[in-house]
Computed example of a mutant assay.
Amino acid sequence: MDKLLKLTVALVMTVGAVLNVQASPDEDRATYKTYYEGRFPGVPFEDYANGVYAIDKVGRENWETIEEFPPYELFIDEGEAMWEKPFANGKGYKDCFPEGPVIAQNYPSWDKKQSIVMTLPLALNQCREANGEKPLNYKKGSINNIASYIAYQSRGKMTNVVVPEDDPRAMEAYEKGKKFYFTRRGQLNFSCASCHMQSVGMQIRSEILSPALGHTTHFPVYRSKWGTVGTLHRRFTGCNKNIRAKPFKAQGEEYRNLEYFLTSMSNGLELNGPGARK
């Protein structure tokens, strides 16, 4: 069994339960990078920030044409208006995030005080609730406007998820996210890795299966299928439905842990959201 095949087997199996080995986040990241270097030797690491278009040349040409007049511009403008508009109590997002809207690179992160993975949508809603406002829907609607504006302002920043290995709770969340990624589920008995590692680059209907590297760099995403912008957790929900598995709650522990693991695998890649996809 050659080195690449060993890596594939190790990654696609349920890590820990099958191998009984707990690799560190840095070791996992190095293994990911090595795997994709072997799978697509002509693709520079930094190009994975473009998701599937790092490996789909035809699709990339169409995508670059779409990006000349991006369909998500309106959502960015509406998000800016939300950022600038005060809440009923006179405060606003600026009071919760005094560093300004260039903050997408700070999420997801481990919130030691709450002992949870903190995502940007969750932080935005906690800001709203702390100021007497109703929380936004986590998959559709206005959450995508404010998130699109923040993503656009944060373009060029590097993905840099920190998993504090000296905090057992943070490591547990990371490991749960990793286990989720490699666990088969649903009537089709697929895992996330089944499509985005084992079968990456293959075509299903009219779509090329995208690599796991760079999956989180471009969210929220405008999808032609949706006709609007949607969150990462909306995409997770759609993937679960595609394999005929019951989706988990958006911004629930399962998807937040998955986001924590998956985003950490893209450390070192530029953020370029919001994106446009099929």
Rank of each mutant, 00 (worst) to 15 (best):
E84S: 11
W83K: 03
D95F: 03
A81G: 01
P98W: 12
G90V: 01
F97E: 05
A88Y: 06
N106V: 02
Q105G: 10
A104L: 14
P86G: 04
G79A: 06
C96L: 01
M82I: 09
D95W: 02
P108C: 10
F87C: 07
K85Y: 01
V102L: 02
I103S: 07
G100K: 13
V102K: 15
N106T: 08
F87A: 09
Q105D: 14
K91Q: 13
P101M: 11
Y107R: 05
A88M: 13
K85I: 02
G92K: 04
N106H: 09
E99S: 13
K85Q: 13
N89K: 05
G92H: 00
G92Q: 03
F97W: 04
Y107L: 04
K85R: 13
G90F: 06
P98H: 11
K85G: 00
N89F: 09
A81T: 09
N89P: 04
Y107A: 07
F87Q: 07
P86I: 07
Q105T: 07
E99W: 01
E99M: 09
P108V: 08
M82T: 06
P98D: 11
P101S: 14
V102M: 05
E84R: 15
C96H: 00
S109K: 12
Q105N: 13
G92S: 15
G92E: 02
K91V: 06
K91F: 07
V102S: 04
G92V: 03
